[in-house]
Design a protein around this nucleic acid. Sequence first.
RNA 1: GGCGUGUUGGCAGAGUGGUGAUGCAGCGGAUUGCAAAUCCGUUAACACGUGUUCGAUUCACGUACACGCCUCCA
Length: 462
Amino acid sequence: MKLKIYNSKSRSKENFNPINKNEIKMYVCGPTVYDRAHIGNARPVIVFDLLYRLLRLIYNDKSITYVRNITDVDDKIITRSINENKPVNDITSETIRWFNEDNDYLNVLKPTHEPKATQYISQMISMIDKLVSKNNAYVLNDGEVLFSVNSFDNYGSLSRQNLKSMNVGNRVEIDKRKKNPLDFVLWKPADKNNIGWNSPWGYGRPGWHIECSAMCKELLGGSFDIHGGGIDLLFPHHENELAQSICANDTKLLANFWVHNGFVNIEGQKMSKSLGNYLTVEDLRKKDIYGAVIRFVLLSTHYRQPLDWTNRKVSEAQNILTKWLSLFDKKDVPIHGKPTKKILEALCDDLNSPLVLTEMHNLLKIEDFDGFINSMVFLGFTSNELNKKSNKKNKFDENNIHELINDLILARQTARDNKDYRKSDEIRNRLEKAGVSINDLGENTKWTLKPFFNPKKLLEEN
RNA sequence: GGCGUGUUGGCAGAGUGGUGAUGCAGCGGAUUGCAAAUCCGUUAACACGUGUUCGAUUCACGUACACGCCUCCA
């Protein structure tokens, strides 16, 4: 199966050909750990998890190296550290723990490496040193080191920015010390009381972009296959990363494929803290919106399109997944975790996940339960959280609840036998309000619990 | 101002130079005491204009509108 991926570099879908067939390498920009991950952070995590699963299937499991970094030194972290009077390390380690919990909740596979920026300071320093010695960077009096974009001919080629016509200085005041307003920080001096490291240019800390260059060099080498992240990173982050890596590594190529996912909106609006429409994975978890549902919603729009997160989509996903996940209990098929051919085809066409979901519907229509369940497993919709959750909720007196439901069903049946339909409908309403759905199948009545089953409502008289 | 993306039926959302997306909702039917669930069937769309073509929702150009990046950001 030929994998095609849209390459931001060429602005077109290309056949994916690994640099080395026996060793495929992917680097994805991970989170800055200063706060809970929001669904905008979750989108690339899910998208590149899917790509990772696909690569593992097409090539050999062990031949894929997937690196997703953690930015654990940054202005936002330091600001929080000062405001809350907490050590930087406390903030970052707690946030990393949250991030991991969220990813488990979303059933995301562990990357091969999850390097932290602070563990690669020496590599960053030697890279900056090399850039200075090659005149790709210059040092200011106060010890700030800047990359000189004029020193790299191809600067702007990835994001197709024309340096001269860019509206530099319109939104941010131009730093007069810079040779070119677009020159960016490699190393900046820091206050002795703040987090920092000693360097040839004095005590300080790295700029934002250099960490990725240092870590991908260290873990993947000078050139690798796929570099991913959110579309907002294309400029300036990836442009800068490319420039400094090419110059420091003396290579021509950093990444063969640049892959970017679109942004997340909430109910048609840009997600932002000031609008109060900022949704974290934790928020959703507290509202009993399960990981599989979040995964479903995030995959229901193609990764390059903007995704609109709406309550309507969430409840649609809940309804569909309630049915889909219940099949794990109903159908006993051998689990091998391989998707069907059509699903593989859809994925190989630039990760067409909406088409994948369509194919899932088709599999049910043609009653290919083996294909269906194993595709579910492959896509990461495995954990039967809906059932787990409803069991947990009723645990306090599960038997009593089941007994109560069975009593009510029996009472309803008796009423029906006596043709007392007013009474039987009353009982049915009560059950349905509580989240018990009734299925009359000939002589028998079966009941199932809906995702938001609330046992308390069973006890309420109408 | 520069760079880029998008506009598909009531909603969501793929895709295609000529024929079916799909899901939800709607409508009709089977089923039911009536429902729900399920099953069967079904309506309905390609922003606008010009061009290329035997044929354009699909290609090209233009217009309008929307959105993103150019500042930290996934």
